[in-house]
């Protein structure tokens, strides 16, 4: 079996607990991420995929559940030095490249923030050298160091954001819709940069997106979320070939193709949660219908899916 880097066990994140407007943003989600892979997490907006990412990295305190990083629990009471250790190993790339960079700081200061916090450089010279190196890693150059974020385009800013995350030499990066705020022509550049970095530095990604077409390109495995629940988790190709859960099917049917012929005949499959007809006592949970292919289903559905599954 492959080496598990991150195990998420029964993670729950509820907002406004105990009040009438309680929201179950993440509702009992469990999955593993293996070292060196890219796990794509997709779903419509508001389904809790960003919240999952943010809870994993502790931007929110989880309502319950565990996040194990290399076997150690990330959540729960921690001393400052332990927290810092996790912050170095786990980083995040944010969705909005405009809002996630402090407008009053130079690019050098933004990138070097992690270096300063963790004391990774001795002296100013080494710090600047690290910054230059990182700028070059993400495809920018030295001259950009003393400029301010507003002088850059969206794609360049996202590169700065990536450089900032890389500065602390993390093992695991959560990319929270890193390309959805970018121009289509830039998206591929950023994704390619991320793939290149993964090869060079052996990074592990959790790639959150709402666009299945790009996720398929970058991910090894894909998880589909619907209303705070993980409904299907499978290797990327398998998911495309053998989508089992009706919601996944509906998502796949929504991908437009650059081919007018097929576009004219493309039929949208609509998902209706009532179509499952779950009984009161039926246990609905993640079940493995084929090696590595998990679907959120009941016992009956499980048998049904298994027969449907094509080799």
């Amino acid at each position: 079996m492959e080496d598990k880097l991150l195990e998420i066990k029964h993670l729950k994140q509820y907002f406004n607990i105990g009040r009438p407007n309680q929201v179950k943003a993440v509702d009992d989600v469990s999955f593993d991420i293996y070292r060196g892979e890219t796990l794509g997490l997709v779903g419509e907006s508001g389904c809790g995929k960003s919240t999952t990412g943010r809870t994993i990295i502790r931007l929110y305190d989880a309502t319950s559940g565990q996040v194990l990083f290399n076997g150690e629990n990330v959540h729960g009471k921690k001393s400052n030095s332990e927290l810092k250790k996790f912050n170095r190993k786990m980083q995040m790339i944010f969705q909005d490249p405009y809002a996630s960079l402090n407008p009053r700081m130079t690019v050098a200061d933004i990138i070097a923030e992690g270096i300063d916090i963790h004391g990774l450089a001795k002296g100013k010279k080494e710090r600047m050298e690290r910054v230059y190196e990182l700028l070059e890693t993400v495809g920018l150059n030295k001259e950009h160091a003393n400029r301010y974020p507003h002088e850059f385009s969206g794609g360049q800013r996202q590169r700065i954001g990536i450089a900032r995350a890389l500065a602390v030499e993390p093992e695991f990066i959560i990319a929270d819709e890193p390309i959805s705020a970018l121009d289509v022509s830039i998206q591929a550049q950023v994704v390619n940069l991320m793939k290149k970095l993964q090869r060079e530095k052996g990074l592990t990604y959790l790639f959150i997106a709402h666009d299945l077409s790009m996720v398929k390109y970058i991910s090894d495995r894909i998880g589909v979320m619907y209303f705070g629940k993980l409904v299907e988790l499978a290797p990327a190709d398998d998911l495309y070939k053998n989508a089992m859960h009706p919601y996944t099917k509906s998502l796949l049917s929504a991908i437009p193709l650059p081919d007018p012929e097929s576009e004219r005949t493309r039929r949208r499959i609509l998902y209706d949660p009532a179509s499952h007809h779950y009984g009161e006592n039926e246990k609905v949970e993640m079940r493995e219908i084929a090696p590595g292919h998990l679907v959120y289903c009941s016992e009956n559905e499980f048998e049904q899916y298994k027969t449907q599954y094509k080799k």
């Binding site: 931007l59 170095r88 996630s100 923030e113």
Partner: peptide
């Protein structure tokens, strides 16, 4: 702001 969140993920106290 999101840049504050970014700083927090970097470990800023």
């Amino acid at each position: 702001s999101i840049f504050i969140e970014a700083a927090q993920t970097l470990g800023a106290n």
